[in-house]
Design a protein around this nucleic acid. Structure first.
Lengths: 155, 155
DNA sequence: GCCATATGGTTTTATGATGCAACCACACAA
DNA sequence: TTGTGTGGTTGCATCATAAAACCATATGGC
């Protein structure tokens, strides 16, 4: 088989995420959904992507529990695609991608938008990773530990 | 042309990130590099990916300034691939992907590792997005604003 | 009712990307 | 010289993607 290697059974959580949203379009669809788009045609015209691909992606994300199809909203017999909590949970990923571009892109002047807090209208801070006790952590301050084995008996 | 649509000129910072690291393998390669892998063979055997694909990805990431080729280190006439600051800057993206799996994956018991702070050995907190004044922000507390036009004259 | 048009897709077909295996180049060792 | 390991490149089969055509169901005009 040549089967574009699936990460489904992989034990790495990053690989598992990529399995669901690691393709070209999914995160952009989620981004648009986060901004309020709901209808097939809206996504299609906004993103300019092929309709068959959009169709496949939407279905895949529905299967993964990232989107749900809501029956209507304006009566028009069609369905809408709305984010589930799992879908909205990708927000930090989108922000991280955005901030990475803002910080390291070779042509940051081409970036058209900035993310601000809607209350004050000022740019948000960089995402920060903290320890349980609140210390700010850099990559070097972290390490991976094997997950404790699930206790079978006393669950 | 069918040319797998490039996001290179896109003004959306998320699309721009995906252009560089939005494919199947790049983030996994970066993850391994973050853990200390450096040599072609190490990546290849650890990730189990085809050598030609690895070769293409490494070259692409070098072109994007995410990796650099260092001439040696153990004398063996070959080169090593090490992360640049831009490459290390993807850390929050990896953490965000990891945490999304941890929170929403259907089979979280299959996730083998947890990210801890190396000082205390305790799991890290969730990534948090804050406003300039320190308020914790949810997706709904944020909005996108057009970037202020670059002033040509008084730069 | 009848035709035109918009929406929301699916099907068809062509090409680029990926996966695998084979091959090549180089370094080093026996 | 031959052998072996590393670091790739090349060919070919298959998969995914893109573009466009096609289809089904409303909606609107007449």
């Amino acid at each position: 088989m040549v089967k574009r290697t699936s990460f489904e059974g992989d034990s790495c959580p990053i690989a598992r995420s990529l399995e669901a949203i690691g393709d070209w379009w999914s995160l952009l669809i989620i981004r648009e959904a986060m901004l309020g788009l709901r209808r097939f045609g809206e996504f299609q015209s906004k993103l300019g992507m092929a309709k068959n691909i959009l169709s496949a992606r939407l279905r895949s994300m529905v299967d993964h529990g990232i989107l749900t199809t809501a029956p209507a909203s304006d009566g028009s017999a069609y369905q809408e695609y709305v984010l589930t909590p799992k879908g909205r949970g990708t927000f930090p990923i989108l922000v991280a991608l955005r901030q990475w571009s803002e910080e390291f892109d070779d042509h940051p002047e081409e970036i058209a938008t900035i993310l601000v807090d809607s209350d004050k209208g000022r740019p948000v801070r960089k995402l920060e990773l903290r320890a349980q006790d609140g210390r700010l952590l850099s990559p070097a301050d972290t390490m991976l530990k094997p997950r404790p084995a699930p206790r079978r008996r006393s669950a």
